[in-house]
Each structure stands twice: as C-alpha cells, then as structure tokens.
C-alpha cells in the first residue's frame, strides 16, 4: 500500500481552492483521494485534518465543517391517528415531560378518538425536547407531536 503523498494533496487543494469546484475525486492504483468543499475554506480544513488522515486507512479527506448527523439529531414524532392529544389518561400523571428520555415502543401520550384513548408510542430513542401540541388539542394524521433529540447507536 502506498503512503499518502501530502504534497500531491496540497497540489489538489491549490488547484481547486479558487474555483467553483464542489467535489473532486482522484483515484489511481487503488488509492482514492476525495475532496468535498465544506462551508469553510478547503485549505484550512485540510490542514486541520492532516493528522487524522495520516492514520486513516481509507485515505479519504472529508473537508466538511459539520457532521451530517448533527442536523438530523432533532427529529419529530408524528401522529398516526386523528383525535385529541393528551400527555396522560384522565386524572393520571403525564406519561412524559419535556426532557424525558424515551425508547422505541414507550408510551408517550394518548389520543382520544371515538371516546377511546389510544396510545401514542415513540418510534425513536432519545430525549423529548419539546411537546409540540397542547393538552386537549385536536391533531390530524401526520401532524408533528414531539421534538426529539435522537440518540445515535441504533
């Protein structure tokens, strides 16, 4: 296996830094070098990642400032029913409050339809950041009910 040639990488960076090129992939003899323009200047990013790249088996430099998962961590739990939403059955303590950690399958609310209370069940693991509807509010199919900070490792 060939050792990464940093001079070559630098050449590439210089080549694309003043252009509009968003992404560049170079491949030769089983060595692949890919550049992707992030929000910061590519050169500066490449510098930052130099140490990591030395140990990298993949020989790929990801010049991205933000990890893609960061944005996806905040997700919503949607209603699959139509009816009135409550955080608990009548005269019971709420099933969850903002800040509660939940796991898939956990009951996190109820929806009253046709005088029956049906469970709202979490389909995600994480921390409930915000309850998006108030108690007794009418909700429709597909409506966002909870904002959840999804925990990775699933």
């Amino acid at each position: 296996m060939e050792i990464v040639d940093f001079d070559k990488i630098k050449k590439f960076i210089n080549l694309i830094k003043d252009t509009d090129i968003e992404e560049l992939v170079w491949e030769k003899d089983g060595v692949k070098i890919a550049f992707k323009r992030g929000e910061k200047k590519i050169e500066e990013e490449a510098e930052k990642q130099r140490q990591g790249a030395l140990d990298s088996e993949e020989k790929i430099i990801e010049a991205k400032r933000e990890k893609p998962e960061e944005k996806k961590r905040l997700q919503t739990i949607k209603s699959t029913l139509v009816g009135r939403f409550y955080t608990s059955l009548p005269d019971r303590p709420p099933l969850i409050i903002e800040g509660t950690h939940v796991v898939p399958g956990q009951k996190i609310g109820v929806i009253e339809t046709m005088k029956l209370f049906r469970d709202v069940v979490s389909d995600k693991k994480g921390k409930i950041v915000k309850i998006l509807v108030s108690d007794g509010e009418a909700v429709q199919y597909g409506q966002d009910l909870f904002l959840i900070d999804v925990e990775s490792g699933e």
Partner: peptide, 24 residues
C-alpha cells in the same frame, strides 16, 4: 383534516379516523 396516508384503505376507508375528524 388529514386522515391518513395515500392508500384509500388507510384514509378514505379509515372509519375511526373519519369519525375522529368529525368529532374534533
């Protein structure tokens, strides 16, 4: 009121969700 996904079985034929929509 949105009463279900695309499939007619789960929306326009979904009696509980239609009754619930009338209720709310």
């Amino acid at each position: 009121v949105c009463i279900g996904p695309t499939s007619a079985q789960d929306s326009y034929l979904n009696i509980p969700n239609i009754i619930a929509a009338a209720e709310i």
